[in-house]
Amino acid sequence: MNNQNRRLFLKLTAAGLAAAGMPALSYGAGFPERTIKVFIPTRAGGGADRNFRNFGGVWKDYLGVELEPSFYPGAAGRVGYETYMGKAEDDCHDLIFGNMGPEVLNWVVKKPNFSLDDYFYFLMVDADPGCVFISEKSSMKTLDDVVAEGKKRTLTVATSRLAHPASLGMLVLANKTGMKVNLIPLSGGKNTRNGVLTGEVDLGVLPVTTAMGRKGIKVLGLFDERNLVPEDAPGAVLINTEYKLGIPPLAAGARAFGIKTAAAEKYPDRFDKLRETGMKVFTDPAYKEAVTKGKGSWALIAPGGIAECRKYVDNITALGQEYRGLLTG
């Protein structure tokens, strides 16, 4: 059955069920009334953009309206969140799509102007573990080489931002092994990769999707307890267990949709429709196709609701507080 037929089938089924008086499906009738506006706190063309395009491209069919992204980069995501909190309407048509890892970690370092209870994440899209990567031209070939070298001299480590779960992983690793590292924030995954590729820095840390499968780059290790991407990051060491870091497997990239608390409270039926239709995207083959066609890996897609998002946010906040000193340099 091709996509078109399948969707038609789904629609007809839904209509049939609604007619049969299934209340769950009549929620939020008439919603959405207009395009869903999605605030993205990073630059166009980055990792969040790619993830959003894949997801939004399928979600729109379930919502019946387009999802229009607008990008508000700046100050480690602060500009995007502050703009969202300031401009977004409380009618469930305005959402934010961010990377919970670095953005929540940023709040630990520097509190935003709004209260953290004023928004929450409700739809987690992926869990992209942090990784340590290196240029294939480098003389260091394994993570052990890196650690050994780091004991001799201070290694320069490219990262997207200082307050990033991947940076945090690197700092914990350095702490445990006694190697010396100097984190170089290069703003954004692309620049971080370029810094490593052109040999300006010794190695880099990033969410693995942004580093793996690229020419000239070798992923040495993952800050995770299992390797979900064995094909793209062959031979990657599982750093958390291998070096006994004592930190939970926190994804460095955990993209999720968030919403203003006021909007979800004011229109619970609309919010439920967003949640329910959002979860359906994960079972749609079109979504899987979009993810695998790009550089993404289906194994890293991790559907999650409010509870999963909450747990992630709490974990990363606690860890951020524990290592606050290291993050602020």
Partner: peptide, 25 residues
Amino acid sequence: IIGVPGGATAAIMAVVLEYHGVAFG
């Protein structure tokens, strides 16, 4: 050649090529 865009426009081109799974080099 090395997958490093020389400028902003080239960076957007990279997004399009990556979307199609084109491997640089």
